[in-house]
Design a protein around this nucleic acid. Structure first.
Lengths: 341, 341
DNA sequence: GCCGGTCGTGAGAGCGCTTTCACGCCGGAC
DNA sequence: GTCCGGCGTGAAAGCGCTCTCACGACCGGC
């Protein structure tokens, strides 16, 4: 195959250089915004670039710069449903948006089963991306370690499981759960139950811990009949709530570890004939869109997602630039008061 | 910077060649599975590769092969909510899974606002990917044209808006809607309403058309009071259903153009004191997970999503291989009968 | 008038890989 | 014994870019 200018295959630096009457080096300088180019030459190059519709070949560039100007958001999650999780969707959106006026590209990689994790690992190790933001909600996930050992700039969304010293940004899940529970306690409730998240997920663990902390701080015993595990879905929340009602009919409040589960709990409560917040006060977590629209509107714990995403971006980009700065950041949550508690 | 073997920077072909006592060319042949290598030499190379943990540099390779072994799934959608749409999530999952035992990588690109579309366009035009599967649900989207003109192998998920001759795979939305409506008519209903999808979305349009076709085929007039537009969300479905009930209290059936909307419609119906399917029969579309779990379980139209995804993959890969084969494929839908109609 | 210092530029060496091409080798046909 | 045809191999030419380095032009200071 010969490389014919203007015939399908895109023009190269040399062709631009020839048309502009300068050398390759000068064209490169113009394209990369170097200041050391005479205005006159710059204009000539720019005209040639425009005329030829020149687009630099990123592979050739990466080959020498060792940069790809691309970062990956990787979702490590075997469970299908979590992909459509509003929390994750928002992280992706915010990240994508905040990168939009950068020259950085964002790609999303899914690592479901082990095979896919392996593929993602290879992809990253091969240098396809300059860095990765990793969402790895499960405690026993091996991907954080794999990517860490790949030596690529890495920021976790959510704290790492085993206390590994990885760079991460997380919401203060424990603190948020504590505040939520204290809010319930503060309004005079004494039989405060909880629907936890899956206890093999870090956020599920932390929010559960916050609930217990609040009870202990108030000098109240933790009654295991008041604790039921959900799976972060609406259906699971309804199930857990029903079980709770069965085991502890005298409960007068419940902290539910996610808004979708809280919506399910609301339904179970309604079906059991309990009023909210009259009979049972309910607090959720996440401040998902549904929290404002359900009936009654949900008091919930909001994470500063925008800040968190910005932080992830900044921490990652500074690593990409070669600076090792802050390793971890825990962001405060905020109680959003609505009608349910 | 000097390139020191084994020191951070990964080993190159030459280092492997030297260790194995052969030439670069031979190593390349082994790595790429060429048969023309003596078993003895092959073993030596493989040992060297293993010892050095050699991983080929994909940029260098792409530079000469003009392939990246990566395809993109791009979602062109300004509306945030659609990202967590179960239909899209499934397409992504299926595609990812079916590519898992290929050497092809899959990345997801989001093209929300115009800026992001521009970025995705540039990304693709620069040759970062070998092909793209494009989900572009809106009628007035410019991305299909942009990517088509980029000259990259392209398969749309869903038919293209303006009759452009693009390669696509779609469900038979019109046929499915017709079948659904006929089912309602066949069970003796005579005042069959519809909650349509947004009329600036292709699926919304097609499903609406199917509804009208069925009525016309049955010799029934289309009563515009029986038509309300939803937005493919549960809340929107509830709103539209309420409006329908207001305008045409005598309706006895409704075809709802998506399952989430149908769930909302079910709620509105319940709140209005109508029984389902006693007073009003309801048929949804998509056979989403929620259709089987809601109350009553939803009769709905299922798309052969697995087949469709496989087709997209095959059509795209054959384009990548340079074959121009089938351009379009419309897959038949199937009515799933449950309790609601 | 000479000298040191910018400043803009171009030649050229690589980045790590694939791939063509030519060459030496060996087995079989004559 | 000679000749031919594979077969395995290595040398070398790129792929399109960046970046160092050297060089000429031009400036002001003495």
């Amino acid at each position: 195959m010969t490389t014919l200018a203007g015939r399908g295959s895109s023009p190269t630096l040399d062709e631009v250089a020839e048309l502009a009457g300068v050398s390759r080096a000068t064209v490169s300088r113009v394209v990369n915004g170097s200041p050391k180019v005479r205005p006159e030459a710059r204009r000539a190059v720019e005209a040639a670039v425009a005329q030829l519709h020149y687009v630099p070949n990123p592979m050739a560039r990466s080959l020498v710069t060792r940069r790809t100007d691309t970062i990956a958001l990787v979702l490590s999650e075997s469970n299908a449903q979590v992909f459509s999780d509003p929390f994750f969707a928002r992280v992706f959106r915010e990240l994508s948006e905040s990168l939009a006026d950068t020259e950085m590209n964002l790609v999303l990689l899914a690592a479901r089963g082990e095979r896919e994790q392996e593929k993602v690992g290879r992809f990253v190790r091969q240098g396809h991306v300059d860095g990765v933001v990793l969402v790895s909600p499960h405690r026993d996930d091996t991907l954080p370690r794999m990517l860490d050992e790949a030596g690529v700039p890495l920021v976790l969304s959510g704290r790492p499981p085993d206390g590994r010293d990885l760079c991460y940004v997380d919401a203060d899940n424990t603190g948020g759960a504590r505040t939520a529970t204290e809010h319930l306690l503060g309004s005079g409730r004494r039989r405060v139950a909880t629907v936890t998240g899956p206890q093999d997920m870090i956020a599920g663990l932390d929010r559960h811990a916050g609930y217990r902390e609040a009870l202990e701080a108030a000098g109240l015993p933790v009654d295991e009949r008041l604790v039921a595990e959900g799976d972060f879905t609406e259906a699971g929340g309804a199930r857990a709530m029903a079980a709770l009602l069965e085991r502890a009919p005298d409960l007068d409040a419940v902290f539910v570890a996610s808004d979708p589960m809280a919506v399910g709990a609301l339904r179970a409560l309604r079906e059991a004939g309990r009023t909210v917040p009259g009979d049972v006060a309910v607090v959720g977590f996440d401040d998902a869109a549904v929290a404002a629209t359900c009936d009654p509107p949900l008091t919930t714990v909001a994470q500063p997602l925008e800040d968190m995403t910005r932080l992830m971006k900044e921490l990652l980009l500074s690593q990409v630039e070669g600076q090792e700065g802050v390793r971890a950041r825990v962001c405060p949550t905020r109680l959003v008061r609505r009608a349910s508690a």
